[in-house]
């Protein structure tokens, strides 16, 4: 039996109100949406809240989704803009969460023999936090979520040359701040 596409599930939910179809869509995308949001807000509690908000907005706005784009792109567009709005509204003196690393990683997280040390982790966290929200989302979408430039620019609703420039600036800033870590 073939696995239904996102668009098929969406049609099942919209036309027949099959809640199972919606649950399956959430299951498929929650990991990526949540990791994308975390990498932009750098705070686990905020990332959980925003993930919930993004899925709720996506559901409320289902009628606006015409199906001309992929459902995943539409969902990620909502995630990027919801997160950027949140970051813009965050009080100016609030510091990014940089709590102890062991609080951030679940025991169930996949082991990685190339685990970064706590200092390196904190340095990456701080370097990402120093970027403006638009630069941070540009590097998150391309380097961390491994999207192509055109797709990432479309999700950011940004012209491709501007998006290239953002990625270039973000890489230059991160390269400068993480220079010591990146040296072989």
């Amino acid at each position: 039996m073939t696995t239904p596409t996102d668009e098929t599930l969406l049609r099942q939910y919209r036309e027949r109100k099959q809640n199972d179809a919606l649950d399956e869509l959430v299951r498929r995308h929650i990991g990526k949406v949540r990791s994308m949001i975390y990498q932009m807000v750098l705070d686990h509690a905020d990332a959980d809240d925003l993930t919930q908000e993004v899925f709720c907005r996506a559901l409320v706005g289902l009628d606006e989704f015409r199906g001309t784009a992929r459902f995943s792109s539409w969902l990620y567009t909502i995630a990027v803009h919801t997160t950027q709005s949140f970051l813009a509204a965050r009080t100016r003196f609030r510091r990014m969460d940089s709590g102890p690393l062991d609080e951030k990683i679940d025991a169930g997280a996949a082991p990685d023999e190339r685990l970064l040390g706590a200092e390196v982790n904190d340095a990456i966290h701080a370097a990402l936090a120093s970027l403006s929200p638009t630069l941070r989302s540009a590097i998150v979408l391309t380097a961390l979520q491994e999207m192509g430039m055109a797709e990432a620019a479309a999700i950011s609703q940004c012209a491709l040359p501007t998006f290239y420039w953002r990625v270039h600036r973000a890489r230059a800033i991160l390269g400068k701040k993480l220079g010591g870590i990146l040296k072989p």
Partner: peptide
């Protein structure tokens, strides 16, 4: 590239475990 590699490793370390997800 080194920057992509170190960011990818950071990203995978920050990912929530199955239980939290």
């Amino acid at each position: 590239r080194p920057l992509d590699d170190v960011l990818a490793r950071w990203g995978s370390q920050q990912a929530p475990g199955e239980a939290r997800l």
